[in-house]
């Protein structure tokens, strides 16, 4: 039992980080903090991938230059690392795009608090209803 818990430490951390990130995205009203949460969430996934690439006792998968591979040496699986490089790039792109959007939102709305933005948008919708609501004989 103890071995199961400690042996899967990486995976436990993955779970905790993932849920933390997700919780921040959902619970925080500040748009920048949401992006931070999203980052944590994605980082958790990186951890998951890298954990599974690790083989007990394995070393870095770099072959000797003379290609004389010793069959007794265990190498870790390099593929997940490669995949995660891609995922990191995607994550950075997402973050930068998200932050750029937040800047634009700040310019237009003068706030980055979700609560305030919703408030402003509700006012816009109310105004629209007043000016366009009559279109369907007042039934809209």
């Amino acid at each position: 039992m103890w071995e199961f818990i400690v042996g899967h430490l990486n995976y436990w951390l993955f779970c905790v980080l993932m849920m933390t990130g997700l919780y921040i995205v959902v619970a925080r009203g500040n748009l920048v903090k949401k992006i931070v949460g999203l980052n944590i969430f994605q980082t958790a996934v990186f951890m998951l991938y890298i954990s599974m690439g690790k083989i007990a006792g394995g070393t870095a998968p770099i072959f000797p230059t003379d290609m004389n591979v010793d069959p007794n040496v265990v190498y870790s699986n390099p593929l997940p690392h490669v995949l995660i490089l891609t995922a990191i790039v995607v994550g950075i792109a997402t973050t930068s795009l998200g932050l750029a959007l937040v800047v634009r939102i700040r310019e237009e709305y003068d706030t980055i608090e979700e609560e305030d933005i919703l408030h402003i948008e509700r006012d816009i919708v109310t105004a629209e209803n007043q000016s366009h609501g009559g279109a369907m004989g007042g039934r809209a």
Binding site: L31, L48, E108
Partner: peptide, 25 residues
Amino acid sequence: RALTAAYDYLIMGTIGATFFVIGLG
């Protein structure tokens, strides 16, 4: 409101894509 729409889409879309990549893992 296109900005907030895009932002919402970004958050939802990224969560979706990350779930997907966890599944692939």
